[in-house]
């Protein structure tokens, strides 16, 4: 027991670990709070699609010799809106629209990286996350993002709840469904871009899906789902990051594994209660 506490104290003495946990918790909180709207509207895989777009924007940033964040955030926001427009106006449904936009973006990224002579950055870090790469600027952006998400969910709660349940009815009673969807898409985009630093392109969608689906196993109301999924996400990030330090494991994969364990445990609990 003392060894575990000593390891946690040692881990928290490093500034990169402090940054990793704070950013991870804020990203976890944001992705869990947005997750319910995306999962229930069958946009679960938007995180995966936007992560591919974000990965491609790294190539664009390298090609233009500028900061990846400056390029990633606006392009990923545009991509998320494009996915929704394809769904609404062109009749190309959620998963197909996500597939189109993400594969097209990756193709652009690969072509640009080829033209510019290939990647010269830590590719593995972008694919699976690297807490060592988290900068002070990421921390401040995460604070702003988390505040934005919490503000949005609190103040637009009823609108978002109505749209998630029935978009056609929401339009009829005068809720600006398109603007609310764009708001969620924008916040999701920023969450994805920042979250890639923590868990990587390949795993970021799990931070949106796992906490919500796990919470849905035991929650009875919409609000309780948001609260439970936020708690699961924050718990998974803290245990995952500290566990990865203690056992020298990749942080992103550790966070996802904790999320998966919680999901399986809650699903088992639900079956036990029903039987």
């Amino acid at each position: 027991m003392n060894t575990i506490i000593d390891t946690i104290i040692e881990a928290l003495s490093y500034s990169f670990m402090q940054r990793a946990i704070i950013v991870g918790v804020l990203i976890g909180l944001s992705s869990a709070m947005l997750g319910i709207f995306l999962v229930l509207k069958k946009y679960s895989m938007i995180g995966d699609g936007l992560a591919h777009v974000s990965f491609a924007t790294v190539a664009i940033a390298l090609f233009l010799n500028t900061s990846p964040l400056l390029i990633s955030i606006p392009i990923v926001i545009v991509a998320s809106i494009l996915i929704m427009e394809l769904n609404e106006k062109a009749g190309i449904h959620g998963d197909a629209a996500i597939g189109l936009v993400s594969s097209f973006s990756v193709a652009i990224g690969v072509l640009l990286s080829s033209i510019s002579g290939g990647f010269n950055v830590d590719l593995f870090g972008y694919l699976f996350g690297s807490i060592l790469s988290i900068q002070q600027s990421d921390l401040w952006l995460s604070v702003v993002l988390a505040l934005g998400v919490i503000f949005t969910v609190i103040f637009f709660y009823n609108d978002l709840f109505a749209i998630t349940h029935d978009e056609a009815f929401s339009s009829v009673i005068g809720i600006p469904t398109k603007r609310r969807n764009y708001l969620i898409a924008t916040l999701t985009s920023v969450t994805i871009v920042l979250g890639i630093r923590v868990v990587g392109t390949m795993l970021i969608s799990s931070m949106i899906i796992f906490p919500t689906v796990a919470a849905l196993q035991v929650s009875k109301s919409f609000k309780s789902t948001i609260v439970i999924s936020s708690m699961i996400s924050v718990f998974s990030v803290i245990v995952g990051v500290l566990g990865s330090y203690a056992y020298n494991l990749p942080s992103g994969a550790s966070i996802v594994m904790i999320n998966a364990i919680v999901f399986v445990a809650l699903m088992g609990y639900k079956r036990l209660v029903r039987s």
Partner: peptide, 13 residues
Amino acid sequence: PAEVREIVGIGLL
């Protein structure tokens, strides 16, 4: 995850 009373309340928004 919504109770009946929550769904009906949408009609007043």
